[in-house]
């Protein structure tokens, strides 16, 4: 044997050994290469179906954006944001009051969902005993609530917030409350997920130093979970901004020509205003609706981008 210990042809081997090595190599090659044509075809078909689904989704979005841009182009200027709605002068109509209405409603939603949603998540994740049947019942129902159609929340808002016990009337605050109820389950679920992602060793470490559960949660766990919680809140807000159906039931449906306030007078929001314009026959209003769609799309893409940025920026591997 030479010092070169690599085997194969460099090494002098007797004939019989060479044959055996060659045979072994063929067997290995046969084992590692796929000989089954049927399997290959099936694989290709499967990938094609997946790509078809992806393409359909992307095409639909592209078509919508293109349509909105082309149809709304004549009105994509500053007057879109500064002019008030009008049916009498459709060429001068704009979204001013609807944009302000959205700001009011969403501002109220944020004020409500952050303390309520994060508080509920902290209780369920850090304090509640998961074996307690009541807590399991609550848990299950929050997951169910996240799937309830938004119109149902609209009816709830109409019956209990606009009328009924709260009797707020058709005001922006009623819209805020209704949308807050709608997205609260999303916030709770996302915040719980973020809290759960903080390893229990952080809790144990705090408690072993003599921290109370509340100190461990407020000083260690919640700060560590903050990016995740924030992402959940932003995504919930994005959903609330896009909602129209429940707001139609709680008053955001009128052509409001004056700037809204929180507790009195009518209000309108971007999506409901788009709906109001789109159902009118005048061509100018159709153009306006398309321009509104562009504004909504840009706004939502911005918000979601911020959420994704925050998630990637603060993502931590434990």
């Amino acid at each position: 044997m030479s010092d070169d210990s690599g085997y194969s042809s460099r090494v002098a081997m007797p004939m019989r050994t060479r044959t055996a090595v060659g045979g072994a190599r063929e067997v290995t090659e046969a084992l590692l290469s796929s000989g089954d044509r049927k399997k290959k075809v099936r694989g290709i078909i499967f990938v094609s179906i997946l790509l078809l689904g992806l393409t359909t989704a992307l095409l639909a979005i592209a078509a919508m954006i293109t349509w909105a841009f082309i149809a709304g182009w004549p009105r994509l200027d500053l007057s879109l944001f500064t002019n008030v709605p009008s049916v009498v002068l459709p060429e001068n109509a704009g979204y001013r009051t609807a944009i302000l209405g959205t700001l009011y409603v969403i501002g109220g939603v944020i004020l409500l969902i952050v303390p309520l949603g994060v508080g509920a998540a902290i209780y369920l994740e850090e304090f509640a005993n998961p074996r307690n049947p009541f807590n399991r019942f609550v848990d299950l129902n929050i997951q169910n609530l996240a799937g309830v159609p938004s119109i149902v929340f609209g009816i709830l808002g109409l019956a209990f917030i606009v009328r009924g016990p709260l009797s707020l009337g058709f005001v922006a605050a009623a819209g805020s409350l209704t949308l807050a109820l709608l997205v609260l389950p999303t916030v709770i679920l996302a915040s719980r997920e973020a809290l759960r992602a903080v390893p229990s060793s952080i809790r144990d470490g705090s408690l072993a130093l003599g921290a109370t559960v509340w100190q461990a949660v407020s000083k260690q766990v919640l700060p560590a979970a903050f990016p995740g919680v924030l992402t959940g809140v932003i995504l919930a807000v994005a959903r609330a901004i896009g909602e129209a159906a429940p707001l139609l039931l709680v008053g955001a449906v009128t052509f409001v020509t004056f700037d809204p306030s929180f507790f009195e007078g009518g209000y309108s929001t971007l999506p409901t205003m788009i709906y109001s314009y789109a159902k009118r026959p005048q061509d100018e209003l159709q153009t306006l609706a398309a321009a509104g769609v562009v504004v909504m799309l840009v706004l939502l893409i911005l918000i979601n981008s911020v959420a994704i940025y925050l998630r990637n920026r603060f993502e931590r591997t434990w």
């Binding site: 060793s201 952080i202 470490g205 705090s206 072993a208 130093l209 003599g210 921290a211 000083k219």
Partner: peptide, 24 residues
């Protein structure tokens, strides 16, 4: 006090890790 199997520093500065106990 207790020290755990896997080192479990808090996701904070070295200083804040040590200061956490005295602070709370």
């Amino acid at each position: 006090g207790m020290v755990f199997q896997k080192p479990n520093p808090f996701p904070k500065s070295i200083y804040d890790n040590v200061a956490f106990g005295p602070r709370i």
